[in-house]
Each structure stands twice: as structure tokens, then as C-alpha cells.
Amino acid sequence: MVSLLKSIINNVLRKPVTRCYPVERRNSFAGSRGHVEMDPSTCTFCGICARKCPANALTVSKEPRSWTLEPYKCIVCGYCADICPRKSISMNPNHGLPGGI
């Protein structure tokens, strides 16, 4: 383990590569699949997203108009955002906090 000694000393003298989460947070990358967002003003409640969701996390009904996402079922694949005909669904790059979106 002597051969790693040089980099161990370097590591001791350098500032840590980890962050002091949650005080200091990393910014999300643009285009990161953080969480699903829906814009109700353009949505027609057609239900395509609910039928295509691989995890059955979405429930949509036309009458009464409702769109529900179960955060614990959602696998954040972004497939709903891809197939939405009105582009009402989008991916927000910020990751949701534990305990809900």
C-alpha cells in the first residue's frame, strides 16, 4: 500500500471532493431527469401518458378532470414527457425532495 502513499498525502492536503449536504447542494445538470411536471393549462386529459407509463404511476380521468402521479411508483424515465401529444408534461431537472414531489 506504499505505492498509494503519495496520493493519500495529496488527498489529505486537498479539500474534500464531497459536499456538506444538505447545507451545500450540487446544481442539477440541464436536461437531468429530476421529476415530472405537468402543465394543466394545455393538458387535454387524453390519458395516453397513463396508458404508456411503464410503472403505472399515472392516473388520468377525463370526467372529473384529474391527473395524478404517484411519486413512489414513478421511475422518472421521462417516457410520458416524450409521448405527450400536447407536450404538457415536462421533466424538471431538479430532483424532488424525499417525501414527495
Partner: peptide, 10 residues
């Protein structure tokens, strides 16, 4: 396999 709340197959 279909979980509760899953939409009916159409």
C-alpha cells in the same frame, strides 16, 4: 401484476 390504480387496458 397490475397494481391498484392502474388504468384499464385499452
Amino acid at each position: 401484476i397490475r397494481l391498484q390504480g392502474a388504468p384499464e387496458e385499452e
